[in-house]
Write a protein that binds this DNA or RNA. Structure first.
Lengths: 138, 138
DNA sequence: TACTTGCTTGGAGTGCGCTCCAACCTTTTA
DNA sequence: TAAAAGGTTGGAGCGCACTCCAAGCAAGTA
C-alpha cells in the first residue's frame, strides 16, 4: 500500500510509531489479535522500542487495512499468510500474488451471485408471508 | 415450502420416503450433519420406519433446501433453529418469522455491498500489479 | 450360518479464528 | 516510593459448525 495510500484517517492524525493499543483502536482489532497476526506470519516485521514493545508504522496500518479487506472477502487466514509470505519474498512473486488476488476476485464475484440468488428466495418467502399469512408451510 | 415447490429434482424421481443416505446424496449434506440438524432442533419431526430408521419426506427435503439457502446467507445455525422453532409453534408466529427473514434480507444486502466495496479495492490492487510490476509495496 | 451393508445412539474430536490467562516487565502518575 | 496502566510471552480455552467414533441393531446375500 505504498502507492495507493489509505485515506481512512486525516493526515493531521498521523505519526510514525503507534503502540499496540493505538493500532487496536484504529483498526478495530484487539491487541490479542494483532499479536496473533504477527505470530502466524501475517504481519511484515514489526519494529520494537528499546524496551521491546511493538511500534507499528503507517505502513503496518496500511497493511492491516488491506488485510481487513481480504478478511471481508472471506479469504481464510492461511491464504492471507501465504500472500504475506509472497510479499516478504520479494518482487519475483508479483505474478503469483496477482494470481492469488485474481482468484479471490473470482470468489468474491461468485459469492455475490450466490447471495443474489438467495436474496431472490428470501424475497419469494417474504412475499409469501405477506400475501398468504396462513397455513402450515415453512 | 408446501406452496412454493422445490424444482431441483424432476418429479419422476420423487417418492415419499427417503433414507438418510439418500437425503445425504440429494442435499450434499452428510448423514452426520442430518442427524445433528435433527438433534439441535433444526428439523421438523422426522418419521421413522418400524425398525427406528429415519424416513425423510419431500417436505423434509424442501425444508432442507430452504435451510441450505439460509446457510448460504451466512445466517448462524442458532438463528435457523430459532426460525424452525417458530414454524413448529404455528401460525401465530408468522409476523416474527417474517421479521426474521426481513432482517436476514437486510444482512444479505449489506453483505453484498461490503463485497462490492472490497471488490473495488481488489481491482485497484490487481491493476497496480498489472501496471507497475515492481517495488516493494504490499 | 456367516458376512456385508447400512442404520442407530451419546459423546468425543476437529479446524478455524480468535480470545484469554498467568506471570512478569516497563512507564507514567500521585 | 507506591500504585496503576499498559506492555511482553507461551500456551490454554472458546464458540461455531460440523465430523467422527464405538458399540450395537437390522436386513440382505452366499
Amino acid at each position: 500500500m505504498s502507492v495507493i495510500e489509505s485515506t481512512t484517517r486525516p493526515p493531521a492524525a498521523r505519526k510514525d510509531r503507534y503502540t499496540i493499543s493505538e493500532v487496536a483502536a484504529l483498526t478495530g482489532l484487539t491487541a490479542h489479535t494483532l499479536r496473533w497476526y504477527e505470530r502466524i506470519g501475517l504481519m511484515p516485521h514489526v519494529d520494537r522500542s528499546h524496551t521491546g514493545q511493538r511500534r507499528f508504522t503507517e505502513r503496518d496500518l496500511s497493511w492491516l487495512d488491506f488485510v481487513g479487506k481480504l478478511r471481508l472477502t472471506g479469504m481464510p487466514v492461511a491464504d492471507m499468510v501465504r500472500y504475506a509470505g509472497l510479499v516478504r519474498e520479494g518482487e519475483h512473486t508479483h505474478g503469483e500474488r496477482r494470481a492469488l488476488l485474481e482468484a479471490t476476485r473470482r470468489d468474491v464475484l461468485a459469492r455475490i451471485e450466490e447471495l443474489r440468488s438467495t436474496l431472490a428466495v428470501l424475497d419469494l418467502k417474504i412475499d409469501h408471508y405477506g400475501t398468504i399469512c396462513g397455513g402450515t408451510s415453512s
